[in-house]
Computed example of a mutant assay.
Amino acid sequence: MTDTSALWKDYVPSRFGQLHYVETGDGEPVLLLHQTPRSWTEYVDVLPLVGARYRAIAMDTLGYGASAKPEEPHTIERFADGVGDLVDALGLDRFHLVGHHTGGVVAVEVAARLQDRVASLLLSATSFVDDEKRGGAHGSVDHVDPTPDGTHLRHLWDNRRGFYRPGEEEALGRYVIDALTVLDRVEEGHRAVRRYAMEPRLPQITARTLAVCAPDDRFSLPSLAKFAAALGCPTRVLSAGHAAAPEQIPREFADTVVEWVGRG
């Protein structure tokens, strides 16, 4: 179990209510954005490793974790509004940005908006949202119907069991906890991704960008080539892992972040 004693947890005000974040370390700020329906705990093992070199910050995306939960439908643009409010409240004039899955799509929007304030961008297992993605057939990933006998708790576990290897039950348990906090809206983040108009935003990105993906993440792996073509950015396939790569290979994930940030 990770020692979290060096992690600082706090809130900042935003136009939507309080936003929760966790940080550790000093130096250039590195902001990490999680997938949905997760929280900052997706980076619980990554934060101390990145924090050994930089000021590592992981926020709870607007609508998730301990951050404010507005009633309006989630959109990538609204998620990015929350990120903008957080970085302004923290006084981050320039920062490095990392996003995983939904967090990567949010990071695209943030980097397109803030441009030179984003010193570098790392997109992890990020969907390339084009007409094919928006128009494709999409089944439910995380939805469960609450049941009086609590069997929906097992269903939440089973929905993601295939993304985790034996021995990774602690990480899978963190997913279940996060999903339970937003059970009535657990699919909204995925729907927000599928509605997002990404293509016109990509030319607005000025930050040097790296796109990475775990080898077993079949949902996101094909996007590497699309980001390379659209942004002219390098890509990298990690050594192992699935959709939960930051929890499955935290050392390699953190080393990848540190190496990319350090290239500047």
Score class of each variant (00 low, 15 high):
212 V>G: 02
77 E>L: 03
23 E>A: 14
22 V>W: 06
67 S>W: 07
198 M>V: 07
209 T>H: 04
219 F>N: 13
189 G>D: 02
173 G>R: 14
177 I>V: 15
96 H>K: 07
122 L>F: 13
157 W>S: 08
139 G>R: 11
20 H>L: 11
147 T>Q: 08
16 F>A: 13
188 E>L: 07
11 Y>I: 03
136 G>R: 12
31 L>C: 01
241 G>F: 03
252 E>G: 13
123 L>S: 06
147 T>C: 01
214 A>R: 02
3 D>L: 03
188 E>H: 11
103 G>M: 07
74 H>M: 14
13 P>R: 09
88 D>N: 10
94 R>N: 01
229 A>M: 11
116 D>C: 08
63 G>A: 00
85 D>L: 02
59 M>I: 15
9 K>W: 01
125 A>N: 14
112 A>S: 12
36 T>V: 14
184 D>I: 01
66 A>W: 11
190 H>Y: 12
71 E>C: 06
199 E>D: 12
163 F>T: 14
182 V>E: 03
57 I>Q: 00
25 G>R: 08
225 A>G: 02
229 A>G: 15
254 A>K: 04
127 S>W: 13
237 V>A: 04
92 L>H: 06
148 P>S: 12
52 A>N: 04
13 P>V: 08
138 H>G: 07
187 E>Y: 05
218 R>S: 15
251 R>G: 13
222 P>N: 10
164 Y>Q: 08
199 E>H: 00
29 P>I: 09
164 Y>H: 09
204 Q>F: 11
121 L>S: 04
237 V>M: 09
73 P>A: 11
142 D>M: 12
50 V>D: 06
171 A>H: 05
241 G>K: 05
91 G>H: 09
73 P>D: 09
65 G>P: 03
257 V>L: 10
239 S>P: 10
105 V>Y: 07
252 E>Y: 06
82 G>A: 06
158 D>R: 15
141 V>A: 08
180 L>T: 12
254 A>I: 06
153 L>K: 09
89 A>P: 09
176 V>F: 06
200 P>T: 05
189 G>L: 02
30 V>F: 01
11 Y>S: 05
148 P>D: 07
189 G>R: 05
257 V>E: 02
203 P>A: 10
221 L>I: 11
178 D>M: 00
259 E>Y: 04
31 L>R: 04
188 E>K: 08
182 V>I: 02
187 E>L: 04
132 E>M: 11
112 A>E: 00
120 S>Q: 12
63 G>R: 02
5 S>Y: 00
203 P>N: 09
175 Y>E: 02
191 R>F: 03
234 P>G: 05
52 A>H: 06
223 S>N: 07
175 Y>W: 09
145 D>Y: 05
121 L>E: 08
254 A>Y: 08
161 R>S: 15
18 Q>Y: 11
139 G>W: 01
227 F>N: 02
48 P>R: 04
91 G>N: 00
5 S>N: 09
23 E>R: 11
6 A>N: 12
93 D>S: 13
139 G>I: 08
191 R>W: 13
260 W>E: 01
263 R>P: 00
